[in-house]
Simulated scan of single mutants.
Amino acid sequence: MSCKTDTVSDAGGATRCGPHHVAIIMDGNGRWAQSRGRPRLFGHHAGARRVREVVECCPELGVKYLTIFAFSTENWKRTQVEVAGLMSLFRRYISKEMKALAARNVRVRFIGDRVRLDAKLVKLMDQLEEETQENDGTHLTIALNYGGRDEVARATKRLAQDVAAGKLDPEKVDQETLPRYLDTHVLPDPDLVIRTSGEARISNFLLWQSAYAEYEFIDTLWPDFTSEEMGRLCRSYGSRDRRFGGVKT
Rank of each mutant, 00 (worst) to 15 (best):
L192C: 14
L187F: 04
D174M: 01
I202E: 05
V122K: 01
T132L: 04
N135P: 09
E199L: 09
V108R: 08
D189T: 05
A153E: 14
M125N: 01
M125Q: 01
E151T: 08
V108H: 07
K172S: 15
E151Q: 11
V115G: 09
V173G: 03
R158Y: 11
Y181T: 07
Y146T: 02
D136H: 15
M125F: 00
T132F: 08
Y181Q: 05
L140N: 08
T177M: 06
A200N: 11
G112Q: 05
L206K: 07
D136R: 15
A164E: 14
D183F: 01
D189N: 15
R195M: 12
E176M: 10
E199H: 10
Y146G: 01
L159R: 03
L124F: 00
D136A: 15
L128S: 00
A200T: 14
K172G: 09
P190C: 09
Y181W: 05
D183E: 03
A165Y: 08
L128P: 00
E199G: 12
F205M: 06
Q161H: 12
G166Q: 06
A155N: 09
V173M: 06
V108G: 08
P190R: 03
N204T: 09
G112A: 10
D136E: 15
R149E: 06
S197H: 03
V106S: 08
D169G: 13
V163A: 11
I142G: 00
P190G: 01
L124K: 13
G166W: 06
D113V: 08
R116S: 14
E151Y: 02
L124Y: 01
L124A: 10
V152E: 11
L124P: 00
A143D: 07
T184S: 10
L207N: 13
G147A: 12
Q127W: 00
L168F: 13
R201Y: 09
T138G: 06
E129F: 01
A103K: 15
A155Q: 11
T196Q: 04
F205W: 05
V193W: 06
V186K: 13
A160L: 13
K172E: 14
A119L: 07
S197F: 03
V152G: 08
A153V: 15
V115C: 05
L187K: 06
I111V: 15
A213R: 01
G198K: 13
A119R: 13
T138P: 03
S203G: 10
I194R: 01
R154E: 08
L187H: 11
T138R: 04
Q127P: 00
V106L: 14
P190K: 03
T177E: 04
Q161S: 14
A164H: 09
V122H: 03
R149K: 14
R116N: 11
D162R: 12
D126Y: 00
E151K: 05
Q209Y: 03
N145E: 04
A155M: 11
Q127L: 02
D113W: 05
A143I: 07
L140M: 12
A160E: 03
W208Q: 10
V163D: 09
S210P: 04
R149Y: 01
L159Y: 08
T132N: 01
G147W: 02
D174R: 02
